[in-house]
Design a binder for these strands. Sequence first.
DNA 1: CCGTAAGCGAGACGGTACGTCAGGTCTTGGC
DNA 2: GCCAAGACCTGACGTACCGTCTCGCTTACGG
Lengths: 215, 215, 215, 215
Amino acid sequence: MATKTPAEAPASKAAPDAKRRSERSRRAIYEAALALVTEVGYGKVTIEGIAARAGVGKQTIYRWWSSKAEVLLEAFIDLGEQAAEAAGGGEAFASLPDTGDVAADLKGVLRATVDELLDRKYDAPYRALAAEGVVNRELSEKFVQQLLEPGLKLYVARIEAAQAAGQIREDLDPRIAMEFFVSPLAQRWLQGTGPLTHEYTDKIVDYALHGLAPR
Amino acid sequence: MATKTPAEAPASKAAPDAKRRSERSRRAIYEAALALVTEVGYGKVTIEGIAARAGVGKQTIYRWWSSKAEVLLEAFIDLGEQAAEAAGGGEAFASLPDTGDVAADLKGVLRATVDELLDRKYDAPYRALAAEGVVNRELSEKFVQQLLEPGLKLYVARIEAAQAAGQIREDLDPRIAMEFFVSPLAQRWLQGTGPLTHEYTDKIVDYALHGLAPR
Amino acid sequence: MATKTPAEAPASKAAPDAKRRSERSRRAIYEAALALVTEVGYGKVTIEGIAARAGVGKQTIYRWWSSKAEVLLEAFIDLGEQAAEAAGGGEAFASLPDTGDVAADLKGVLRATVDELLDRKYDAPYRALAAEGVVNRELSEKFVQQLLEPGLKLYVARIEAAQAAGQIREDLDPRIAMEFFVSPLAQRWLQGTGPLTHEYTDKIVDYALHGLAPR
Amino acid sequence: MATKTPAEAPASKAAPDAKRRSERSRRAIYEAALALVTEVGYGKVTIEGIAARAGVGKQTIYRWWSSKAEVLLEAFIDLGEQAAEAAGGGEAFASLPDTGDVAADLKGVLRATVDELLDRKYDAPYRALAAEGVVNRELSEKFVQQLLEPGLKLYVARIEAAQAAGQIREDLDPRIAMEFFVSPLAQRWLQGTGPLTHEYTDKIVDYALHGLAPR
DNA sequence: CCGTAAGCGAGACGGTACGTCAGGTCTTGGC
DNA sequence: GCCAAGACCTGACGTACCGTCTCGCTTACGG
């Protein structure tokens, strides 16, 4: 049984000592990265720029991250945690609301999502990460795992609850059902194939639940 | 009196004379761009690299395009035209098939789309353009207008036909209905949130048409 | 017979085209290098600094030279040529003066040399090159060959003339004899083992010619 | 009144306590410095490299020395002392030999000097210090004072003895006379203007003593 | 003989410069 | 006048060291 102790790691070039890490620098880097992405656009963000803005040596960035995409990913995750902590006391979005009415619940969540996607503070970095992920498998995995998946799981759970309540057919794969609510929104946001409005997401929910074909 | 032709561009530095343009160079640049994107990945493609590979001066690229994204966009459109010409005699995909059975027709088209998205030849450049579009509004517009929209219009047309045939409810916005077939696929492809299979797209069609709620 | 044509050169990374070289940049680089060495000292001269001061890209330096020492060497040689051209019409120092009196001639030349070595304009770069040469064989060879040797040859020639005139013993190696006039000066200048004055060089000449031992 | 002990250093940042200094580290640093200079060349020696090689923290070097040149200077002096201690019981080279024959005595010493200068163990560090001294006045002074001067004084003393013995003219400045034996050797060694051989130094002595001019 | 303050190995930090790569502009010579 | 070629200025890359600054630890001094 080749179980490894967690304290191992042969690493290619000696891992830095996380205990000595400067919290102050980390925060400054996050802030600089987020600010720059919104100000100049992801393509024009440079490691050098982040370092300068954060008042930090370049090496301090290279020591802890391996690309600007990774910096931004962590910065954005941190931004989410900050927001969550500020908003709710504990786990902010542990689950989607469940009033017993799936349609209403989903409409509410999607409206909130639209608002968030249109918020300058989130749009630029989130979009940058999505773009990078499209073309960079490694980042994509982290992006999906750490940012997307937690949100998607909430939908899946809510749909399962609806199935139990008889509001959604039991024979459907909730993982796929969930995409009817999320993907149209995602595509409009990412590719700009149409406007993001509350009316739009309301319709999405209605169409999806009742189907396109006449009854 | 400096008579101008109506199509005159007030360009800052005199537009090059398209009549004298070297067809040979243009083709070589397209091929180089597509090959490089597949071989080294979009992020590592450089104008210099394209020029070298195409046996062309850098200036010849800068004269006719304004960024590597634009080169790639045109190269990809050209690739599509080549393929279309090769495949069908004339207009290859003037419309989606209409056998009278929307479900079957859509399933067929989506299966073909999945196959195409998984084809190495198309995946890399298409993905690169999509990624760039997420973060670059100008390119995004051209991308949607010239590559995405024509395809989407076919769906809209097919759905309208189905509405006329009574297979899809008349009160639905076909533009939104269309997204139920296209967006889930797009998201899985772009973000890697799930596998792309024929079974998957079949389900998408069924779920969408009959709705998630029990009848 | 494996004689190679001069136009050959397989070079490690393609030699740049000297015909297209910017004369303006070359001159600016020479001036910047010389100025910086005098102002901040050889150790603090950087390629980046030279480039900035010369208003030139770093790559333009790296394209034509392989180290700051080589830049400085060429700059200093050029400085000498400038001075020579300015001073005499043609070849300024084709030979040492020959009035028939070796002692007087040598004293005159050495006094002039002292003055030159104490001139701020020459001291810093010359010293830097000498220092680098002490520790860098490749540069040392170029330094000796291109800067030192031409001067030393003049001494050898003058000594040979003196031998022919019976003022210096015929059985002596002029190459070694020459060093008695040059080396003490060189050491005082390089290592600071004593002051450089006209009295000092006069004595050197007298001591050397008449010997240390009593007659 | 802030009474100061006489040995008090008004240092800017409190002098370290020499009593607590680690002898083991000091030695390791000397060895590392000397080894590195010979192995990779002075220019490529770094404080970090010395520290790593010596198994010592960087701060331990910065605490006791102010530059790599100073480390090397002390290391080299120490090397000399080690050698002296090993060779002779007490003061190894308290004076030059005096057999009554200046010529022979000087030839012997110079031959020994040549051998030492060609010894790999001494060449690299000594050369490095000389080079640094050419361009760094502060180090130059220490270098001359602590390494060169003691040797030169021996020559001066031997020449004065020869003057007393009537073998060298009394009216000559022994300080200058000495340079005829030392400087040519120094220049050939530092600048590579000629080979270092026993024949060469023998001739130096003969030429210097009897003069270049015919008698 | 024991507590404490120093020296120590280690290495993270804010920086500067390295040598390289590519971007976009401009010039030269060939066709 | 387009083109291949490529020198040029610019600016970012990722790395190596600089000299300073903690961190625990070990060690020897002085109360």
